[in-house]
């Protein structure tokens, strides 16, 4: 595992140009410096949702599959991590790994069912399946029903490093975030990712070229679900709560918006979208249902006028081909 990671890292390092290397280093430097200027819990939430949106975009942006039920993976992972941390007293890395595994397994089941239909049916099926998860979360004994799981402890990382301070927790979450984004980036820029794009552009042609499209779709569905779970599990550690909000269809819609707003089909666009949406929510939450209305309006504007999203639009303006 570790050796494969190192091999993958060195291979990646070789493919990046000097300019890209500088950009990566600058981004990392900003990530390290930010918590000293901005409230770390807010930043951690942004990172969780950014990872969630980037994972979701693997399906929507790079494979052309609109899942309207991704909250199921995010939310159930957050319940599993919260339960593991609180009841079983697991260390964060084990709890989050467990949450990721559960989300991946759920993704395998959902994906197996949903890829039988395409386009709009795919969206409706994933929505219906995630609604089942919602009802399960409402009725199962360990989820705490309407209350959710509250007072989740931040146990020590590897049993040694204390994460109870927000700053320490921030660097843990940052590591998870960077790892998750690297996984997304690596998936997109791989031969596997190229086949996904071929499926997105013209599925019958990909089939006629001999690719077993269903296998590819299922694999990327599981990867996307697992990374969504990674984000959801980490979120439970950050906000110390797992609640029904994370499994609702509104949450599934929110991640679509983040992706659309940031830029479908760009690797890091959804992260930008997540940042914008969370910032909006942060400022508008005091005004009750206004935040829902504003998000709805942004949705409509994005669909009508702004389909490339923020990063996609920037790339188009700067004359770079979308990656």
């Amino acid at each position: 595992m570790a050796r494969a990671l190192v091999a993958s890292l060195t291979e990646t390092a070789a493919t990046l140009s000097l300019r890209q290397w500088l950009l990566v280093l600058a981004a990392l430097a900003v990530l390290v410096a930010l918590p000293f200027f901005v409230y770390p819990v807010f930043l951690m939430k942004v990172m969780c949702f950014a990872l969630f949106a980037c994972a979701f975009n693997l399906l929507l942006g790079f494979t052309g599959l609109l899942s309207f039920g991704h909250a199921a993976f995010f939310g159930s992972a957050s319940y599993v991590a919260a339960h593991g941390l609180k009841v079983w007293g697991l260390t964060p890395e084990i709890a989050i790994a467990l949450a990721t595994l559960v989300a991946a397994a759920l993704g395998l089941v959902f994906g197996f069912i949903a890829i039988r239909r395409q386009g709009i049916y795919f969206a409706m099926i994933t929505l219906a399946l995630s609604q089942m998860v919602f009802f399960a979360a409402l009725q199962m004994p360990f989820t705490g029903g309407e209350d959710g799981i509250q007072g989740v402890p931040r146990t020590a990382f590897l049993g040694i490093f204390d994460l109870s301070s927000n700053l320490a927790c921030y660097f843990f979450v940052m590591a998870v975030f960077v790892f998750g984004l690297f996984a997304v980036w690596r998936t997109v820029h791989s031969p596997f990712g190229q086949v996904l794009k071929a499926i997105r552009e013209n599925e019958p042609r990909a089939v006629s070229l001999g690719y077993r499209v269903d296998h590819y779709k299922l694999t990327i569905f599981v990867i996307s679900a697992a990374l969504s779970g990674l984000a959801g599990g980490t979120k439970a550690l950050v906000v110390q709560v797992a609640s029904l909000t994370d499994v609702t269809w509104q949450m599934s819609g929110e991640v679509v918006l983040m992706t659309l707003l940031g830029g479908m089909g760009t690797v890091f666009g959804p992260a930008v979208g997540a940042f914008v949406v969370l910032t909006l929510q942060n400022y508008l939450n005091a005004f009750g249902s206004l935040v829902t209305i504003v998000i709805g309006v942004i949705f409509v504007i994005c669909v009508l006028l702004f389909r490339r999203g923020i990063v996609g639009e920037l790339q188009a303006r700067l004359g770079r081909r979308p990656s």
Binding site: G119, S289, T292, G296, V297, I298, F299
Partner: peptide, 18 residues
């Protein structure tokens, strides 16, 4: 066709919010 779904989803949020 997915854009129609997304647009009407946005409408849901606006209508329910209002």
């Amino acid at each position: 066709h997915l854009y129609g779904l997304l647009l009407t989803f946005g409408l849901v949020l606006i209508i329910e919010g209002l």
